[in-house]
Each structure stands twice: as structure tokens, then as C-alpha cells.
Amino acid sequence: MHGPVSAAWLLVVLCAATGAYCLLRMRSAVEEQRRAAGGEALMGFGMAVMAVPAAVFTPPRWAWPVYAAVFAAGALRALWTARSGRHHLHHLVGSSAMVYMAVAMAVSPPTEAHHAHGGNGIPPVTGALLLYFTGYVLLSGVRLVPTAAAASAAAGGPAPARWGDRPELARACRLSMGIGMVTMLLAM
């Protein structure tokens, strides 16, 4: 990823922390929570690795096709699980975006490994992904804003037994990964 090194490190930390939290969510008693958390942990750690500044570490050329294969497998899994709920479609789009970025890095010349689209403007696929993830970030942010009814219910109702099962923390994780995806797409 190109851009300011400090911003890249912040993205690495954000994505790695999100991946770590998602690993903790995999211990949830709620089966759906565990299923979603595995794919989200893969995304978080994968984004963290991809966001490491090029000045610090440039992966070998063979790593990008491996990366694309791992996320293609994640996309196939998300497609399979999308049969049970449409929220898995977001995982499909996210995994597909990671495949797209890995392929772009694999086919770009070594000297321009982090400028896959060259100087011809934003490629249509990148633009479509940017629109999707920007909309996702905005919608996720709005969903995190507590409403008066939810706040009063939360004040009087019982709290979830485990912090890993709290839906607002899972939403915040997805929001941070969406922000990370927008950042990475802009840096391509």
C-alpha cells in the first residue's frame, strides 16, 4: 500500500485488532456469530498483511496469487453460506475485493506493485467497490448511533452475558473493516 507510512501502520493496527476481536467472537455460544466471525477474522488479518507499508516489506511475487487463492476460497464459502442469509453477500463482496486487489498486485510491474491501475484514472471495478464500501461504511455508522428506544431498552434490560456476543461490537468491527477497505482501494 502506498501513501503515508503512519497511515498505513494505523490501518495495519486497526485491521489486526479487528481480526483478533473476530477470533474471540469465534468462541461465542451463538452459532451464527461463530460462522460470521471466522470470515471476518480472515478479512481483518488479510487486510492487515496487505496494508503493511511497501517501504517496510514487499511480498514476493508468488505471494499475490496465493493471497488471491485464499480469498477466492473465502468468496466461495461466502457464496455458499449466502443461501442462509443475505448478510453473507457482504462477505462475498469483501472477499472478492481482496481477490481483485491481490490480482491487481500480481499483474502489475514490480516497480509499480502498488499502483496497479497506472495513471489512467480509477478503473471501473475499483470505482464500483469504492462506491459499495463507502455506502456500507455510511450505513454501518448510522446503525451504530443509538436511538432513544434502544437506549432506554438497554438501560433497563439485561446485558448480554459475554462481551463477544454484543452486536454493537460486531457492527463496529465491520465498520472498521469497511473503512479499511475504502482506504486500501483508494491507495491502489
Rank of each mutant, 00 (worst) to 15 (best):
H2N: 12
G3W: 03
G3Q: 01
P4S: 09
V5D: 05
V5L: 08
S6D: 10
W9E: 05
L11C: 13
L11V: 08
V13C: 12
L14N: 12
C15K: 00
A17V: 11
G19H: 01
A20G: 07
Y21M: 11
C22V: 00
R25C: 15
R27C: 08
S28V: 08
S28Q: 03
R34I: 15
R34N: 14
A36M: 10
G39Q: 03
E40C: 11
G44N: 04
G46N: 01
M47L: 14
M50W: 05
M50S: 11
A51P: 00
A51D: 04
V52M: 13
V52L: 15
A55E: 15
A55C: 13
V56S: 07
F57N: 04
R61W: 09
W62T: 02
W62M: 04
A63H: 09
W64L: 02
P65M: 01
A68I: 08
V70M: 13
V70L: 15
V70D: 05
V70I: 15
A75V: 06
R83C: 06
H87R: 10
H88M: 11
L89S: 06
H90W: 05
G94Y: 05
S95F: 14
S96A: 13
A97W: 01
M98V: 11
V99I: 01
M101I: 04
A104T: 08
M105P: 00
A106M: 08
S108E: 10
S108V: 06
T111L: 14
E112R: 13
E112H: 13
A113V: 13
H114Y: 14
H114M: 13
H115C: 07
H115N: 11
G121V: 03
P123D: 10
V125M: 13
V125H: 00
G127W: 09
L129R: 04
L130D: 09
L131S: 05
F133I: 11
T134M: 13
Y136S: 13
V137D: 01
L138K: 06
L139K: 09
S140A: 13
L144R: 01
V145M: 08
T147Q: 03
T147Y: 02
A148G: 09
A148V: 15
A149T: 13
A151Y: 02
A153M: 06
A154N: 09
A155K: 12
G157V: 03
P158M: 07
A159N: 02
A159T: 10
P160R: 00
R162H: 14
P167T: 07
P167E: 10
E168I: 04
E168V: 11
L169G: 08
L169K: 00
R171L: 15
R174L: 14
I179W: 00
M181T: 07
M181L: 12
M181Q: 03
V182K: 04
L186K: 00
L186Q: 02
A187Y: 01
A187K: 00
M188L: 14
